[in-house]
Amino acid sequence: MTISAEFLEPIITLVLLLLLAVIAFGIVRVRGLFAVVIMLGAYSFLMATLFIVLDAVDVAMTEASVGAGISTVLFLGALYLTDVKEATGRARRLAPMLVAVVTAGVLIWGLSDLPEFGSADQPIHTKGADYLDRSIPETGIQNVVSSVLASYRGFDTLGETAVVFTAAIGVLALFARRRSDGKG
């Protein structure tokens, strides 16, 4: 170990962030929807890699399987049932650009007093619930993300399940109508 983690982690984060920005630019510019969907898959994998560097291993696993896996499959399925090429038609440029610039300005102003990257003395670590200390005595679970997800914020997860259930019902309802339309 000649290079310390304190030096290496910010550099890897920096490189991955820049790659993410480049791919996002490509997604905005490219017209072929097939290429865009594949780029979105690559983007999700990069995001998952970044989450590993940021010590969010559970999120990285979910992003790699759900973001890069399932959503790419869903997009490809939708492309198979629709068009692969985006129309080049007249582009609205001014209004979206204006909205984007104003939003960017507000965000830059709003994020200007965020704490430093990776420092331990920011409010998120010094104040608030100390799940890291409470997890083992109270729940006996070593993976604190699991204990917060299933125990401390169990209702959150219940709500999430309800949302996924509702979405599934919605998709089924949409395609059930389609089948009856085909018959009639």
Partner: peptide, 20 residues
Amino acid sequence: PLPHVLILTAIVVGIGTLAL
């Protein structure tokens, strides 16, 4: 761990809305 939990929920809800 708290942001990780919130974002886990957000990713799964995101795939639900995307599918719909």
